[in-house]
């Protein structure tokens, strides 16, 4: 039971560090110093400490609650070293769909803001989801099929059985590549960040979010980065034998899209779809073909 409290907490802390890492990577790539160590935390505290905030109604507020809560629930489905949480009760497919709940919550909350910039952002975000989820489910299918199970615990056990040689990335390099590609889009980082587009639709979904609303989204971002990194680690990098290797893997995984992100401008929505349906999806299918035949 204590696991269920510790897992989201760990996820949040790791997520904060990831946000920092992301901003630092960005700064270094632009030859800047970047934010101080606790900057993500200060941001969140500041936002929650706002004294006047505008709400557009109950759904606006509940949307944020759902966005945070969905991730809090979802991370308990991802086993950590020594902690299985609810991984036995849920499994991979349930996890993938649980991770859509925050998006749904956010979409509802944004919808009630009555700001078309937000709605456009959501429309683009959902379109992007349509794009990246296809390689994502191909990857999920491939892994689940390869290990003959949708239980993440069993998948990790199978990977850890023979060291690096039995890791997903060694067994299924094509799928691992497709997964990485899909993760880039899933995180909404450049070149796939059209739905935020600060200069044209005023950060899209976040346009009417201030104070604790934005703070909630910052928290959600921590979870999101963690979830993406952890999921990839669990599927392809053998999960965590111990905390040290787990953290190294998770950060390494997230560092890749971060580093790529700041080198690119962004694609238009339809180009996102076209690109993601073409390359990672095709590579993923090829990977599955190799697995099956």
């Amino acid at each position: 039971m204590i696991e269920l409290i510790l897992m989201p907490l760990a996820a949040f802390v790791i997520g904060l560090a990831m946000v920092l890492m992301m901003r630092r990577i960005g700064a270094r790539l632009q030859r800047r110093v970047g934010p101080p160590l606790l900057q993500p935390l200060w941001d969140i505290i500041k936002l929650h400490g706002k004294e006047t905030q505008t709400s557009h109604g109950l759904i606006h507020e509940l949307g944020i609650v759902m966005a945070i809560g969905g991730f809090v629930a979802a991370v308990t489905l991802m086993p950590l070293p020594g902690m299985n949480g609810l991984a036995e009760q849920g499994g991979l497919i349930a996890l993938v769909y649980m991770m859509m709940i925050p998006s749904l919550g956010l979409a509802l909350g944004v919808g009630q803001c009555a700001n078309p910039n937000g709605s456009i952002g959501i429309s683009r975000a959902l379109t992007a989801m349509l794009a990246y989820d296809i390689p994502m489910v191909i990857v999920v299918f491939g892994v689940a099929f390869f290990y003959g199970s949708t239980s993440l615990v069993q998948i990790i056990d199978a990977q850890q059985a023979g060291g690096f040689a039995t890791w997903g990335i060694a067994e299924m390099p094509l799928l691992a590549f497709a997964g990485l590609f899909a993760m880039q889009a899933m995180l909404g980082k450049q070149p796939f960040e059209i739905y935020v587009a600060p200069a044209e639709i005023a950060t899209g979904p976040m346009v009417e979010m201030g104070g604790k609303f934005l703070g909630g989204l910052f928290i959600m971002q921590c979870f999101q980065l963690y979830a993406a990194g952890a999921l990839y680690t669990l599927l392809f990098l053998g999960g965590g034998e111990n905390w040290l290797t787990f953290l190294i893997k998770v950060f390494a995984v997230v560092a890749i899209p971060m580093s790529i992100a700041f080198l690119f401008p962004r694609y238009r929505t339809e180009d996102v779809v076209r690109l993601v349906w073409k390359w990672p999806a095709m590579i993923g299918l090829l990977g599955i073909a190799f697995l099956m035949y």
Binding site: W42, T203, E208, G211
Partner: peptide
């Protein structure tokens, strides 16, 4: 580099 002071640009008045 303002960001080292924790200062970032934002887009909409709600966030700023």
């Amino acid at each position: 580099d303002m960001e080292r002071l924790g200062i970032q640009p934002m887009v909409s008045p709600r966030q700023a």
